[in-house]
């Protein structure tokens, strides 16, 4: 059980900066993010892209901005649950909240700040009948525990970096590995592709190019996978596990079930303090909406500052807040 003042859902740039603004007011933060690393879409989608509209930085690469934010919030000792999705938000008797994650982490907090950006990044799933019946029963979209594939027959599909990297890594663990890719060439890193071709030539893996998934079958647990190639020839191979790796796609996810007022896929907030219709829950950054909303990182930073001023009353109900500049007061670490 984790105890904190503010639970921030989403560790993108705006969620990270919220730690700073909260920290200046002596509020501690715990962040939860479905991705295994901080930075949200900046590190997941475009780490090497330059951003030109961060005040004070004529140009900064996305991952550098995240590195800087991580450094900036260090004095306030934030804690993290990464690779976990928030599943439940429960109101406690004392007015605070209990936040529960997909890994059964429980976070007790006084305030929730949703800085969820585009929502949760979820794996893209191939459109195959019955695939969902085998999810968790042989069909996996993430590799969390490579050792579970020991002595198992494994099929990996996809042609990007993650398909190549996991094929190389798991080739030596699994009893048998087949990589299925729809094209003739890979678009992942060239040296990874070379390694995969070398593994295939050495007979360490089966490489099926110009081939697509067609069907999955089994009896409770996955047993076989049917494939079809470009000449429309089909074949079925036996497999214990199928790992489709087609990248991630953002979905609003469980956020839509917490009683918050939504407008399309965004959370409606009051621009006075970026509070939602549920007392004690705020929404900042790309996930919120209000008249005139601009989805800019700098807007999210501003929203984080106003949120913190307002959230103070839930964390320190008996104290009066006096605003101080960092130039006067400095940054007082925890």
């Amino acid at each position: 059980m984790i105890r904190t003042d503010i639970c921030i859902i989403g560790a993108g740039p705006v969620g990270l900066f919220a730690v700073f603004e909260a920290g200046l007011l002596k509020m501690r933060c715990h962040l939860v993010d479905v991705l295994p690393q901080i930075g949200g879409q900046l590190t997941e989608i475009y780490p090497k892209k330059p951003i030109y509209d961060i005040p004070g930085y004529p140009e900064i690469k996305a991952h550098e901005l995240i590195d800087n934010l991580a450094k900036q919030i260090e004095p306030f000792k934030p804690t993290f649950s990464l690779g976990e999705r928030v599943t439940h938000v429960i109101r406690n008797e004392d007015g605070g909240f209990e936040v529960k994650t997909s890994d059964n982490t429980s976070i007790t907090c006084k305030v929730i700040v949703i800085a969820g950006g585009l929502g949760c990044f979820e794996p893209r799933k191939p459109e195959i009948a019955d695939l969902d019946r085998f999810e968790g029963k042989g069909v996996l979209y993430f590799v969390k525990n490579p050792d579970q594939f020991k002595d198992k027959r494994l099929v990996v599909t996809g042609g990007g970096d993650s398909a190549l990297d996991w094929t190389i890594h798991l080739a030596s663990i699994a009893k048998h590995l087949t990589l299925v890719h729809r094209n003739e060439t890979f678009r992942g890193a060239p040296d990874s592709a070379e390694k995969v071709f070398a593994l295939a030539e050495a007979g360490k893996i089966d490489l099926l190019l110009n081939t697509n998934l067609q069907a999955v079958s089994g009896n409770g647990h996955l047993k076989a996978i049917s494939l079809v190639d470009k000449k429309n020839e089909t074949k079925t191979i036996e497999a214990d596990f199928l790992i489709p790796l087609f990248g991630l796609s953002p979905k609003l996810g469980p956020i839509s079930e917490w009683g918050l007022k939504l407008d399309k896929n965004a959370i409606e907030v009051n621009t006075f303090d970026y509070s939602t219709n549920v007392e004690g829950i705020y929404a900042i950054g790309d996930i919120n909406t209000y008249p005139g909303k601009l989805k800019l990182i700098l807007s999210g930073f501003h929203e984080a500052a106003l949120m913190a001023q307002s959230a103070f009353k839930f964390v320190y109900p008996n104290q009066k807040l006096s605003f101080k500049y960092t130039t006067v007061n400095g940054v007082n670490a925890f």
Binding site: I45, K49, G247, S249
Partner: peptide
């Protein structure tokens, strides 16, 4: 139309 366009048009997200 419901288009996510997560990356804002950089050909980086396929949404």
């Amino acid at each position: 139309y419901e288009i996510e366009a997560a990356c804002g048009g950089m050909a980086l997200c396929a949404t």
